[in-house]
Design a protein around this nucleic acid. Sequence first.
DNA 1: CTGCATCCTATAGGATACTG
DNA 2: CAGTATCCTATAGGATGCAG
Lengths: 124, 124
Amino acid sequence: MDKKNLTSKACIDSINAVKDALYVLNGKWKLPLIVALSNGPQRFKEIQRSLDGITARVLSKELRELELNLFVERKVFNTVPVTVSYELTGYSQSLDPIIEALRNWGIQHKKQIVKERKSNISLV
Amino acid sequence: MDKKNLTSKACIDSINAVKDALYVLNGKWKLPLIVALSNGPQRFKEIQRSLDGITARVLSKELRELELNLFVERKVFNTVPVTVSYELTGYSQSLDPIIEALRNWGIQHKKQIVKERKSNISLV
DNA sequence: CTGCATCCTATAGGATACTG
DNA sequence: CAGTATCCTATAGGATGCAG
């Protein structure tokens, strides 16, 4: 196999690894939800407030999926009324580099957009 | 403002930054598409082959969006038949940390899944 | 409070056929 | 080759109401 094909193969491997990651982390809420829980265990309503915009139905579904993927643990306390808290597992920490990268990029990109808007205004 | 609220505010900021990032990078194909182009300029059909599974309709749409967001530049050459090539812009490099993190996690997670499968089999 | 049930809309994304 | 047009399905996600 020549060099070009080797390069291609490495590239395809990268594409597939990124695809694999996105397959698990897709959707609008999973990563933000994990960030919300990074502050420590929280209850359903607290999370809903932090995420601001998510419906109970969707939050419930997302939490279940994250539980299945072993990122989140659900704990029920026999208080009256019942209290349920969600917390991150150890495995969820493996996502930290992704979240950090997204967070930094999000901050940086927003600044960039604002800058572009300003220069566009001066062109109008 | 007490310490707890300060912590919350920082957390909300993080959530929003991640939301902002995902808003731009959402979907199944945008990041894999950028990885595909990281090998250098490529033509429509080449990209489609690399991504393996994307339809022309979707690829076309994704490329347009990435162009609008200044991650990709489209170049047309007056050959017969016409040749079109797509390449990454300098700004797209700002996504490298995100892609690296996703790539590494994807590789790692896949190994993890395989390990779990094996131990599950021995339980059956 | 912690959700689930129901209903609904919008969007992502795929299949196929076709044009210059 | 480089797409576009048309049609279609599946899924994400929202609105509202209700139960334990």
